Simulated assay, not measured.
Amino acid sequence: MTQDVWLPLPPEEIKGLPGGPNYLFWDGDQQEFPGDPADCAVYVVPYMKPVPVRTRPLERMTRLRVIQTLTAGVDDITADLSLVAPGVRLCNARGVHETSTAELALTLTLASLRGIPGFVRAQDDERWQGDFRPALADRTVLIVGYGAIGAAIEDRLTPFEVGRVSRVARSGRTTARGIVHPLTELPALLPESDVVILSTPLTDGTRGLVDAGFLARMKDGALLVNVARGPVVDTGALLRELESGRLTAALDVTDPEPLPPGHPLWRAPGVLITPHVGGPSSAFRPRAERLLVDQLTRFVNHEPLRNVVLTTGA
């Protein structure tokens, strides 16, 4: 029996897809499904669509074997896995977003430290307004969440002559670059860090990780950069620190998200906000296509899949 594979990219535009499956295009914009969801074996989740759109066909995909996201985080899908039968492998997009997200993390850090938002506002008013700002050079940077994206961020920090990079992950280990500290050592590292970059996935263990206590341990004048997920940070606690002027922040993600008009975070002092654009760039499409070709080739040839986060019912 031919198995359907639902793709959010037109299959004729992806070079190297293996023969065998019946490839159907569905990016979530079409109300009608491209085929019977019951015949779908591999569901590649539409990218940058609302969660109800992405999860809408899951309940009817009774023969599903693989869910492949095009996001690094899978928290939006795991919340709806009760709709899926046991034995379905959920895979994330490790290898797709490291480049873009790390670029944005560095962009936010540099723009915030060097006061670029203020210069843009001065340009709008045709004011020549100089300022003396901190450099990234000689700063101590703490990366919280040292997976593939965290490592890619460090790759890009290295040429900027940072003073020291500290790394934190759920469990400690040693890498070629040095020690990765476990989360239990985070409180001792925060007071030493000039810049704290969040790149951790959203899990039960990281939701609300950056709370009032976390922020209080950060040194005066430190910068918090969030390219992880909004709910990793307690927005109320962050607002209090921003409004006091003690900390600054650069946020690609917020809680709530999208940030609604009138929310106090928009006008809080010392904050730079981008609208969750860490992943979508020109680097996304070629890396996503390479992942899909490799993953589907593995599926057709009954080889182990990459990036398996979990198997339902296991």
Score class of each variant (00 low, 15 high):
Ser193Asn: 02
Val195Cys: 06
Arg164Asp: 01
Asp194Val: 12
His181Asn: 13
Ala212Met: 07
Val168Met: 10
Gly150Pro: 09
Ile153Leu: 10
Val165Met: 08
Leu142His: 01
Glu192Tyr: 05
Arg133Gly: 03
Val210Ser: 00
Gly147Gln: 09
Gly130Val: 12
Val141Ala: 00
Ile149Leu: 15
Pro182Asn: 14
Thr184Met: 10
Thr206Asp: 05
Ser193Leu: 07
Phe160Cys: 08
Asp131Val: 08
Thr158Glu: 07
Asp211Phe: 00
Val165Thr: 14
Ala176Gly: 08
Ala152Cys: 07
Arg133Ser: 03
Ala169Lys: 09
Leu202Tyr: 06
Phe160Lys: 04
Val196His: 05
Phe160Ile: 08
Gly178Lys: 10
Ala176Arg: 11
Thr175Gln: 06
Gly145Leu: 11
Val162Phe: 07
Leu189Glu: 14
Leu157Asp: 02
Ala176Gln: 08
Gly147Arg: 10
Arg170Leu: 13
Leu189Arg: 13
Trp128Lys: 15
Pro191Gly: 11
Val144Met: 00
Gly163Ser: 12
Asp138Leu: 14
Val195Glu: 03
Arg167Tyr: 00
Ala176Val: 09
Asp211Gln: 03
Gly178Thr: 06
Asp131Thr: 12
Ile143Ser: 04
Val162Ala: 04
Ser166Thr: 14
Ala152Asp: 02
Gly163Phe: 13
Phe132Ala: 14
Arg177Glu: 06
Gly147Trp: 09
Ile143Phe: 04
Gly178Met: 11
His181Pro: 04
Asp211His: 00
Leu190Ser: 05
Val168Thr: 13
Val196Thr: 12
Arg156Thr: 03
Asp204His: 06
Glu154Trp: 03
Arg164Tyr: 05
Tyr146Val: 08
Pro187Ser: 12
Gly163Cys: 14
Ser193Val: 00
Ser166Asp: 14
Ser166Asn: 15
Gly172Lys: 02
Gly213Lys: 11
Gln129Thr: 15
Leu189Ile: 12
Val168Ile: 13
Gly145Thr: 06
Ser199Met: 13
Pro182Gln: 15
Gly208Cys: 10
Gly147Phe: 09
Ser199Glu: 12
Leu198Cys: 10
Leu136Tyr: 02
Val180Ser: 03
Asp204Leu: 08
Asp194Asn: 15
Gln129Leu: 15
Leu198Glu: 07
Gly163Val: 08
Gly150Trp: 06
Arg139Met: 13
Val180Ile: 14
Arg177Leu: 02
Thr203Ile: 10
Ala152Asn: 02
Ile153Gly: 01
Val162Tyr: 06
Gly172Pro: 01
Thr158Gly: 00
Val180Ala: 04
Gly145Cys: 11
